[in-house]
């Protein structure tokens, strides 16, 4: 018993990095989980994939133009390239022979490839750590990244709260929303901006690719469990907080990548919900269908 408590409490006494890591990863994960619900419901999950990838060329481009890696410039670059790619995806998929998923694939892989090439040639000397951008380092959060997250995520959450009604209506029924005067396109681009900003803030903690998991997986899990939007957001946040705690301790115990562990735990929780969610879980449905069949026969 004492050993378990020791194991739970211990890491907090080893130094700053534990609470810094925990704080950062929680804020990033909660921001992603809330935004993820709206992206998921709008069938824009894969846009998160694209936005997270194109933030890399965005940051590189911002550095090339300004020569600085200050947080606001970094965010501005990522948002500019993010919105540019969202607009190009929309323009491409309005052509009859390009589906929207193909458009996403074309735009983000091209931009990502350009970013990788710039990183390895023109800006080779800059202090951009590709590995860190891609995979993150939860336990080595810099002051800069910590501040970025502490400022960005609460701001984003506040905006979501303010715009909640419009976000909800335009996610559910965009035509109706437009008819009652909700600026649907502005809400759409606002949401994308929020996703990009949150993702970039989270890069140093969890990396570009794993941030996609933090956006999509909690919402997908919550959708299996919730019947109302408010409860879906609650489940999504609950899922992500649970993943963060379990993942962090696993990573410390097994001495492995914290971001990887958090995402892996999130995936396992999704699988559990997929199988066992009351009413919508696949195993539960299978069992109740069988029970119903058996019941029907016994009545005969």
């Amino acid at each position: 018993m004492i050993a378990i408590i020791d194991w739970l409490v211990g890491p907090w006494q080893w130094g700053d990095w534990m609470w810094r890591g925990m704080l950062t990863v929680h804020l990033v994960a909660i921001g992603c989980a809330v935004l993820g619900v709206f992206l998921y419901l709008r069938r824009m999950s894969l846009l998160a994939d694209a936005l997270a990838h194109v933030a890399l060329p965005g940051i590189v481009a911002a550095f090339l133009i300004s020569g600085s890696l200050d947080a606001p410039i970094m965010l501005a670059g990522a948002v500019a390239v993010g919105l540019f790619s969202a607009a190009s995806i929309e323009a491409l998929s309005s052509r009859p022979n390009i589906r929207s998923d193909a458009a996403i694939g074309i735009v983000f892989t091209s931009l990502f490839a350009a970013g990788v090439i710039l990183l390895s040639t023109v800006v080779r000397d800059a202090h951009i750590d590709t590995h860190c951008l891609l995979f993150g380092d939860v336990l080595g959060i810099s002051d800069r990244a910590l501040w970025l997250v502490v400022v960005v995520v609460p701001t984003v959450l506040l905006l979501v709260a303010l715009f909640y009604r419009w976000l909800a209506v335009s996610s559910f029924d965009p035509r109706f929303a437009a008819a009652i005067g909700v600026p649907v396109a502005a809400i759409n681009y606002g949401l994308m901006t929020a996703v990009t900003v949150t993702a970039v803030a989270g890069f140093e903690a969890v990396g570009a690719i794993l941030v996609i998991a933090l956006i999509i997986v909690p919402a997908a899990t919550a959708h299996l469990l919730a019947d109302r939007l408010v409860s879906m957001i609650a489940w999504s946040v609950g899922h992500t907080v649970a993943s963060c705690w379990i993942g962090m301790y696993l990573a410390i115990g097994l001495n492995t990548s914290a971001a990887g562990a958090i995402v892996t735990v999130g995936g396992v929780l999704y699988l559990a919900a997929f199988l066992f969610a009351p009413r919508h879980g696949r195993l539960i449905r299978l069992l109740s269908a069988r029970q119903a069949a058996a019941g029907g026969e016994s009545k005969k």
Binding site: R43, R165, F172, R228, L229
Partner: peptide, 29 residues
């Protein structure tokens, strides 16, 4: 709108859908 243009899996109850009808007059907040 035509039925079937919204997502029936959306986590929203019947009463909440009807409440949306008031959103134009109540505004965002």
């Amino acid at each position: 709108p035509q039925r079937g243009q919204v997502d029936w899996d959306f986590p929203i109850t019947a009463a909440e859908v009807v409440r949306q009808g008031r959103f134009r007059s109540t505004g965002m907040l």
